[in-house]
């Protein structure tokens, strides 16, 4: 639903990680669920959507019940943070080496989405807030440069 547009990219990231890293998929959905409930849990279309998302989360949690990243919040936090920083560092290395391409733009953007997801564990650190801001800005900036044929600085 349009009211939940703010979490559509997090849900897409969840889908993309379904096989590759189900823990990432789970926490992206948990973030979307929590945020979605704050945005709109009253209108029928949003309620229907959120109930379906909750069903999915509960079944994922059952499937992943042996994974410490799901059963222990602190392990989950570390998993998502490490993954986000890995994405960030890959994109940052490409950027510093002057290699600008779609994949690195996506890595910057995914890192920023996963830093949003970290907020399910509590308030973000100042460092993570800065990384998120930088990653989001870099993704937009390089994307625009490539689109207009400019070389990013």
């Amino acid at each position: 639903p349009a009211q939940l547009k703010a979490v559509q990219h997090h849900l897409r990231t969840a889908q993309e990680h379904e096989k590759r890293d189900p823990v990432v998929a789970y926490y992206c959905r948990l973030y979307a669920m929590q945020t979605g409930m704050k945005l709109d849990s009253k209108t029928p279309e949003c309620r229907k959507f959120l109930v379906k998302l909750m069903d999915q989360l509960e079944s994922m949690k059952t499937e992943l019940s042996d994974d410490d990243s799901i059963t222990q919040e602190v392990v989950g936090n570390a998993h998502i943070e490490n993954y986000a920083l890995k994405m960030f560092l890959y994109a940052d290395n490409e950027d510093r080496a002057g290699r600008f391409h779609k994949n690195m733009i996506k890595s910057f953007y995914t890192a920023s989405l996963l830093l949003d997801v970290l907020s399910v564990f509590g308030e973000l650190s100042e460092e993570n807030i800065q990384h998120r801001k930088y990653a989001r800005w870099k993704a937009a900036y390089i994307h625009n440069c490539l689109k207009s044929g400019e070389t990013p600085e």
Binding site: S41, L50, M54, K61, I70, Q72
Partner: peptide
């Protein structure tokens, strides 16, 4: 009927909040 609709919506919302709390509880 408006108030019935509103209370159904509120009950469903509560159920969702409870399910979310249970999901987070076991973490």
């Amino acid at each position: 009927t408006g108030s019935v609709g509103a209370s159904v919506a509120s009950a469903e919302q509560d159920e969702l909040s409870q399910r979310l709390a249970r999901l987070r509880d076991q973490m």
